[in-house]
Simulated scan of single mutants.
Amino acid sequence: MAGRRFVVEADGGSRGNPGPAGYGAVVRDADTGQIIAEAAEFIGHATNNVAEYRGLIAGLRAAHGLDPDASVDVRMDSKLVVEQMSGRWKIKHPDMQPLAAEARVVFPRSRVTYTWIPRERNKDADRLANEAMDAGRAGRAWEPKARPAAAAAQPAEEALPAPAAPRAGWAAPADLGSPTTFVLLRHGETALTPQKRFSGSSGSDPELSERGRWQAERAAEALVARGTVQAVVSSPMRRTRETAEATARRLGLEVRIEDGLRELDFGAWEGLTFAEAKERYPEDLDAWLASAKARPTGSTESLATLAQRTAVARDRIIARYAGRTVLVVSHVSPIKTLVRLALGAPPDAVYRMELSAASVCAVQYYSDGNASLRLLNDTSHLR
């Protein structure tokens, strides 16, 4: 039975190019023209083109959530994105390549077409992108003003549902097939790590230190010796990419970038120690420790929103590498969150886990939704 037909209109903008950026996307029923889903998000400091690609990805995902068998006509006023995604222009910029690759895997290529439209015909997506940027400037998450009945828009942070945790259970029966295994590797040390300074997605994006590179090589040796890693996925940040490349290089694999694995945005706390953040922003820090919905000073992201995007990244990786063992290189907050979700533990469980630099955790995911935590904070390869 053929799937539904959707029109996705997407846009993105940056006030400064690069500067504060956001995207917006709508999904319409192709027959009636009715908007049935909306998505928008402030994405921090980025270029127009990055924001446009993020809008495209969000629109495609919203359509996929409504009907994974649908056919989609994407309409955008970005000639660059339309021509690149149609295959007529090469994608040369390194920031665009992983985003285009991510957009291509949402639906089979045969079911997506791309059409350029003038800006005046893309007003709804443009409006949502500006709403998202306005929300980000005000230090809050975007929320829809008038949500359509069948919309699949991102909910307001105050109403965020808990990300779906895999169901609890013992080892899955054999008829469920091989599980998908995440080998979760925290990146090696940077200059900030030994000082225990906040180092998130909006900070300086430091490289690995000399010790961090040594740790990455020791982890790579141990992982290669096990002989089980079949794919490598990394956060886009420099320290994780460098850590991931140490293993990928030895195995002859490429490093696939997953934006949802990036560290939390720590806002004004970036570069500070816990004691310094406590001295300068005591009320904000106390609120953050007390509630998963609270955000670091100046950040647009809470642990609740991080859990949402981490769960989406998890599901996307599982779908792509079903039944295989994947090295997932990320940061403290996303890895702790993946472990927490696997255990079905409450949000404050992340404060009760130790996760050392270059440590390894392992989680297995079964086809019925069961998850099994197999390893936590293993540093034996560093001894």
Results as ranks from 00 to 15, higher is better:
residue 14 S to D: 04
residue 279 E to W: 04
residue 81 V to G: 08
residue 90 K to S: 13
residue 192 L to W: 10
residue 187 H to T: 08
residue 275 A to C: 08
residue 250 R to A: 10
residue 249 R to D: 09
residue 147 R to K: 14
residue 184 L to E: 00
residue 84 Q to G: 09
residue 46 A to Q: 06
residue 333 S to L: 10
residue 281 Y to S: 01
residue 62 A to W: 04
residue 287 A to R: 08
residue 24 G to R: 02
residue 99 L to V: 03
residue 275 A to V: 09
residue 101 A to H: 03
residue 3 G to A: 06
residue 104 R to K: 13
residue 146 A to C: 07
residue 12 G to A: 08
residue 294 A to V: 10
residue 236 P to Y: 01
residue 223 L to K: 01
residue 358 A to P: 07
residue 213 R to K: 14
residue 91 I to M: 00
residue 99 L to S: 05
residue 57 I to D: 07
residue 7 V to N: 12
residue 124 D to A: 15
residue 306 L to V: 03
residue 98 P to F: 13
residue 45 H to E: 12
residue 40 A to R: 11
residue 317 I to R: 00
residue 150 A to M: 09
residue 316 R to M: 10
residue 90 K to W: 06
residue 128 L to G: 02
residue 42 F to I: 05
residue 208 L to F: 11
residue 309 R to S: 03
residue 359 S to W: 07
residue 43 I to W: 01
residue 251 L to Y: 04
residue 304 A to Q: 06
residue 286 D to E: 14
residue 249 R to N: 12
residue 185 L to F: 02
residue 250 R to Q: 15
residue 154 Q to L: 15
residue 169 G to S: 03
residue 38 E to P: 13
residue 319 A to C: 12
residue 90 K to C: 04
residue 83 E to M: 13
residue 27 V to W: 01
residue 52 E to G: 13
residue 80 L to I: 02
residue 35 I to G: 13
residue 123 K to G: 12
residue 371 A to T: 00
residue 306 L to K: 02
residue 148 P to C: 05
residue 120 E to W: 14
residue 312 V to W: 10
residue 211 R to P: 04
residue 338 L to I: 00
residue 160 L to K: 04
residue 248 A to L: 03
residue 311 A to S: 15
residue 242 E to Y: 07
residue 377 N to P: 14
residue 254 E to C: 09
residue 373 L to H: 05
residue 282 P to C: 05
residue 136 G to T: 11
residue 229 V to W: 02
residue 229 V to R: 02
residue 193 T to K: 11
residue 160 L to P: 06
residue 211 R to I: 04
residue 60 L to F: 11
residue 93 H to F: 11
residue 371 A to R: 00
residue 120 E to Q: 15
residue 225 A to V: 05
residue 342 A to K: 00
residue 352 R to W: 03
residue 327 L to S: 00
residue 246 A to G: 04
residue 55 G to F: 05
residue 258 E to M: 03
residue 229 V to S: 01
residue 314 R to E: 00
residue 236 P to F: 01
residue 110 S to K: 15
residue 354 E to N: 14
residue 129 A to N: 10
residue 24 G to L: 05
residue 366 Y to R: 05
residue 310 T to C: 12
residue 347 P to D: 04
residue 192 L to H: 14
residue 76 M to C: 02
residue 203 G to M: 08
residue 147 R to D: 11
residue 83 E to Y: 12
residue 283 E to M: 10
residue 200 G to H: 00
residue 83 E to S: 15
residue 218 R to T: 06
residue 302 S to A: 02
residue 325 T to K: 02
residue 191 A to H: 07
residue 72 V to F: 08
residue 238 R to S: 02
residue 287 A to K: 07
residue 61 R to H: 13
residue 280 R to C: 10
residue 28 R to K: 15
residue 1 M to W: 11
residue 137 R to S: 12
residue 204 S to K: 06
residue 119 R to D: 09
residue 188 G to N: 09
residue 11 D to Y: 12
residue 105 V to T: 14
residue 147 R to F: 06
residue 117 I to C: 03
residue 54 R to Y: 07
residue 49 N to K: 01
